[in-house]
Nucleic acid binder design. Structure first.
Length: 554
RNA sequence: GGCCCCAUCGUCUAGCCCGGUCUAGGACACCUCCCUUUCACGGAGGUAACAGGGGUUCAAAUCCCCUUGGGGUCACCA
């Protein structure tokens, strides 16, 4: 036996779309495992599908990973991460290597050219299916003579290279699932180089894992059966065998596989039920829209998808790491929760950080069963993490979130108001986003506050004395408060005293009319905080406007 | 459909490998009550699971088999 190799794990996303939670968990586990073993974690971009690859998406991946606190020792260079001796780390830049390895396979008789068209193969597949037979490539091209192949190639006929699959059982040994044997005959002569000259996933992955010295392949269970193909390839090429671990899939609450396509799926349904034949105004151009509607495999650009969703008034599901970021989730909570989907440290421990994960992660404690992603529990974890933060930390992080996603809100807020609002929102808020979307009143013009009839009836006009009566009585009291005393403590003493005298001590009778006058609604932070987030003059204006609006003309 | 994998509360899971400590534990959700100026938080309780059937054994959530159910995979996608 050779000396144990340094542990090398890798995360190898295709750059179509953004990093979604399933991919994020794979990356997290690969990273944590490498860190635990003092090894290396590398990132490789699998962009061998020219139709689906785009540069911007891979940048998004990198930023998402960074945000989660996952760094990589080798891979694309990005903000201090990446580089390394085994590059390039984009597969599209490694074609020479693949071709060299392909040649070896051809020379050794383990691979051969085939020239069927996609249509021909499709027809054969359909035929087999119609007869209730499992389709396997029939090896027709294997009977082509060397001369025939040469002349086709010389004539520029486009063809693929297939792996000549030895007919033998393959036993996969898996650190998570145990071992499983795929019977001979289940694997046919699969394509390893496409007609466009690019390798297929199976081939590129095997070559790269060898040349990048990957020792542990930790990936989702959807790849489990593929592993047999990879092992056959490794044997034919004389490569070392990495250790495999296949992690459970992360599913939607309905049990379907959580996919980045779920957004498009939801949107298409919405478009259909709205009977739209053209894109909503100011969203996407009609051509894009049409081809997207016609091809279920097409994904709308994320920004476009968001625009269409807004136009149709539907809410896109959070799928990508970036969606959760935008919604105000904390990266440490996402990591914690992701790790808990499929792994548990035991001993009823649920809340932990990445350092703990690195210390305790054990491959054989990873679950074998698919997990449904429970957004409600995630939200609860997020709320707990937020309320456990020091006030100052919360304010800093909330502001940073706001600067990123709610710049206008911050601009409209008076100096010093943000701190007050954040402090008042801290313990009643479950995400960093919440304070920005539930407190419109704080940045609204005094003149724009309106109260709907139902609320007015309930809070202002009913009962004896009515809420309006209390409001009217409060005007001189509030007006009498000096600017210097415009703080929660002082206001509380004034209003409590009033409530004791005029409302039998029932604060609600006084606070609710005030809240409605100030915010237009029945929900806001505690009333004394609400009062002080606004300036005294703003409060007076709003209260007077409200009284005026609901006082019947004499 | 062929092949492979899996199976504990509604959900995430502990326990399973090394049968007895399990009248199956925790968390989220849900229900009830308490607190309360709205919302939220908080406090106290509660409902809720070993898929079914056969074995093995003194004893099975734990080991074996079958059935059922779920997932994955069968592309010139990754």
């Amino acid at each position: 036996m050779s000396a144990p190799r340094t542990v090398v794990t890798r995360f190898a996303p295709s750059p179509s779309g953004h990093l979604h939670v399933g991919g994020a968990r794979s990356a997290l586990f690969c990273w944590a495992y490498a860190r635990q073993k003092g090894g290396r974690f590398l990132l490789r971009i699998e962009d061998t599908d020219q139709k689906r690859s785009s540069d911007s998406a891979s940048i998004g991946f990198l930023a998402d990973l960074k945000w989660l606190g996952i760094d990589w020792d080798e891979g694309p260079s990005f903000e201090g991460c990446g580089g390394g001796p085994n590059g390039p780390y984009f597969q599209s830049e490694r074609l020479d290597l693949y071709n060299e390895q392909l040649d070896r396979l051809i020379q050794s008789g383990n691979a051969y050219f085939a020239f069927e068209t996609a249509e021909e193969l499709d027809a054969k597949r359909k035929l087999a299916k119609g007869e209730g037979r499992a389709y396997r490539y029939d090896r027709a091209a294997l009977s082509l003579s060397r001369e025939e192949v040469q002349s086709k190639l010389a004539a520029g006929v486009s063809g693929v290279i297939r792996f000549k699959c030895p007919g033998q059982d393959v036993t996969i040994v898996d650190e998570i699932l145990g071992s499983a044997t795929i019977p001979a005959g289940e694997i046919d002569d699969f394509v390893i180089r496409k007609a466009d000259g690019f390798p297929t996933y199976h081939f590129a992955v095997v070559v790269d894992d060898e040349f990048m010295q990957v020792t542990h392949v930790l990936r989702a269970q959807e790849h489990f059966t593929n592993t047999a193909k990879h092992m056959l390839l490794q044997d034919a090429l004389g490569y070392r065998r990495p250790i495999y671990g296949h992690m459970p899939i992360i599913c939607n609450p309905d049990g379907s596989k959580m996919s980045k396509r779920d957004k498009d799926k939801l949107l298409r349904t919405a478009v259909k039920s709205a009977n739209l034949t053209h894109p909503p105004e100011n969203t996407v151009d009609p051509a894009t829209f049409q081809s997207w509607m016609q091809d279920k495999n097409k994904q709308l650009d994320l920004a476009d998808a968001q625009k269409v969703a807004e136009a149709l008034r539907v809410v896109l599901p959070e799928i990508n790491v970036d969606d959760f970021r935008r919604s105000g989730y904390l990266p440490e909570v996402i990591c914690n929760f992701l790790a808990l989907n499929g792994w548990s440290p035991g001993h009823d421990i649920e809340k932990f950080d990445n350092a703990f994960l690195i210390e305790r992660l054990q491959l054989d404690r990873i679950q074998k069963t698919a997990a449904k992603f429970d957004r409600v529990k995630l939200l609860s974890f997020n709320a707990d993490a937020i309320s456990a933060m020091d006030r100052e930390v919360y304010i800093t992080r909330a502001r940073a979130h706001g600067e990123c996603y709610h710049a206008q809100f911050l601009e409209r807020l008076a100096a010093g108001a943000f701190e007050k609002l954040a402090a008042a929102s801290h313990e009643r808020t479950k995400t960093l986003n919440e304070m920005f979307v539930t407190n419109d009143w704080a940045v609204a013009d005094d003149e724009s506050i309106t109260v709907d009839a139902k609320t007015a009836d309930k809070v202002l006009q009913r009962g004896a004395p009515t809420g309006l009566t209390h409001l009217i009585a409060l005007v001189p009291l509030l007006n009498g408060v000096a600017e210097a005393n415009w703080n929660p403590q002082h206001l509380e003493s004034i209003i409590k005293r009033y409530a004791d005298g005029a409302a039998e001590g029932q604060m609600g009778k006084v606070a609710q009319p005030l809240r409605v006058a100030l915010t237009g609604g029945t929900v806001s932070p505690p009333i004394f905080d609400t009062l002080t987030v606004l300036s005294k003059s703003s409060v007076m204006t709003r209260v007077r406007r409200c009284i005026h609006a609901f006082t019947s003309p004499a």
